[in-house]
Amino acid sequence: GKELVLALYDYQEKSPREVTMKKGDILTLLNSTNKDWWKVEVKATANDKTYERQGFVPAAYVKKL
């Protein structure tokens, strides 16, 4: 199945390749080969529509579930 990670801290994206997350968010882990930056998929809701974004977050800010 898919691997999930838990956001340990809030993170505000600093570039278009990154994604914003809030502490407590559960994210889908896409790639953890880089030890510093993990690629995740974030589900977000805006205007009653759910959309998914993929991007990088600092590996130290998340932990595998």
Rank of each mutant, 00 (worst) to 15 (best):
W38Q: 00
A60V: 08
Y11H: 04
T20S: 15
P16C: 09
W38L: 04
D10R: 02
D10S: 07
T50K: 09
W37H: 02
G24M: 03
V5C: 13
N34G: 09
K64R: 12
N34R: 08
K22C: 11
L8P: 00
M21C: 07
A46T: 13
W38D: 00
L4N: 05
A7Y: 02
L6M: 12
L8T: 04
G55D: 00
D48R: 07
D36C: 14
L30P: 00
K39C: 15
E3G: 10
K64F: 09
A46W: 13
K49A: 11
L30R: 03
A59K: 05
A44M: 15
K2T: 11
Y11E: 02
T45L: 14
Q54N: 08
R53E: 03
A44W: 15
E3C: 15
N34C: 10
L4G: 03
Q54I: 14
K39P: 00
M21N: 00
T50H: 11
T50S: 11
E3S: 11
E41R: 09
K23H: 05
L27F: 06
L4E: 07
T20W: 05
K14I: 08
F56D: 04
A7H: 01
L8I: 09
W37S: 02
E52V: 15
T28D: 05
K2L: 12
I26P: 03
G55H: 02
E52M: 15
N47K: 09
V5M: 04
E18D: 04
I26R: 05
V5S: 02
V42C: 12
R53K: 12
V5Y: 07
A44I: 15
D25N: 06
E13D: 04
A46K: 13
V57A: 03
N34I: 05
L30A: 02
R17Y: 13
K35Y: 06
E18L: 05
T50P: 10
K64T: 08
W37L: 02
A7C: 14
L6N: 02
E18I: 03
E3D: 11
L27D: 01
T50Q: 12
R53W: 06
N47V: 09
T33E: 14
K2I: 13
A60D: 11
V42L: 12
K49N: 11
E52I: 15
D36L: 13
G24R: 01
T45S: 12
M21E: 00
K22L: 07
W38A: 03
E52F: 15
V5W: 06
R53D: 04
T50G: 09
K23E: 06
T28W: 13
Q12K: 12
A46R: 13
N34L: 08
K63P: 03
T28G: 08
L30K: 04
A44V: 15
K63V: 15
V19P: 00
N47P: 08
N47C: 13
G55N: 01
A44P: 08
Y51M: 10
A60F: 08
L29S: 00
V5N: 00
N34K: 05
T28P: 15
L27S: 02
T33V: 10
K22H: 09
L29Y: 01
K64A: 07
K43L: 14
N47F: 12
G1Q: 13
R17H: 13
D48K: 09
K35I: 10
N31Y: 06
K2H: 13
M21T: 05
D36R: 13
E18Y: 05
K22S: 08
N31M: 06
E41H: 07
S15W: 05
Y61W: 06
Q54H: 10
K2W: 11
E13N: 07
K2C: 15
T33M: 12
R53Y: 06
R53T: 06
T33I: 09
E13M: 11
K35M: 08
A44H: 14
P16D: 11
L6T: 06
K39I: 13
E18H: 05
Q12Y: 14
R17S: 11
W37F: 05
D25G: 03
V62S: 00
L8M: 09
T45E: 10
A44N: 13
K23G: 05
F56A: 01
S32K: 07
K22F: 10
E18W: 02
L4H: 09
K35D: 10
V57L: 02
L30S: 00
A59C: 07
A44F: 15
L4C: 13
Y11L: 01
E13P: 14
E41N: 07
K43H: 14
A59P: 05
G1S: 13
D10E: 04
P58S: 03
K39Y: 15
V40F: 01
K64I: 14
P16N: 10
E13L: 06
V19Q: 02
M21I: 15
Y9T: 07
K35G: 08
L29P: 00
T50M: 10
T28I: 14
T20G: 08
N34E: 09
P16E: 11
Q12M: 11
A59R: 09
G24W: 05
S15R: 09
I26A: 02
P16A: 12
T20Y: 03
Y51S: 10
K22D: 03
S15E: 07
V57R: 00
V40S: 00
K39N: 06
V19S: 02
A46E: 13
F56I: 06
Y9S: 08
A60G: 13
V19Y: 02
A7R: 00
L29A: 01
E41P: 00
N34P: 04
A60R: 15
K23L: 03
P58H: 02
E52C: 15
T33R: 11
G1C: 15
E13T: 07
A46G: 10
G24S: 02
Y51D: 08
W37T: 02
E41V: 12
R17C: 15
Q54C: 09
A46F: 14
P58N: 02
L27V: 06
D48F: 08
D10V: 03
D48V: 06
L8G: 01
V57S: 00
L27T: 01
N31G: 06
S15F: 06
L65C: 14
K63F: 07
G1M: 13
K64M: 11
L29D: 02
T20V: 02
P58F: 05
Q12A: 09
M21K: 00
T33D: 15
N47H: 12
L4R: 11
P16L: 08
V62M: 06
K23A: 12
G55T: 01
A7P: 01
N34F: 07
Y61V: 07
L30T: 05
T45R: 11
L29G: 00
R17N: 13
K39F: 15
K2E: 09
T45G: 10
K2N: 10
K43E: 10
K2Q: 11
L27N: 01
K63Q: 13
N47L: 12
L65S: 03
D36F: 14
E18R: 04
E13K: 13
Y51C: 11
T28H: 09
A7M: 02
A59Q: 04
Y11N: 01
V5G: 10
A59W: 01
L8N: 02
Y51R: 10
T20I: 04
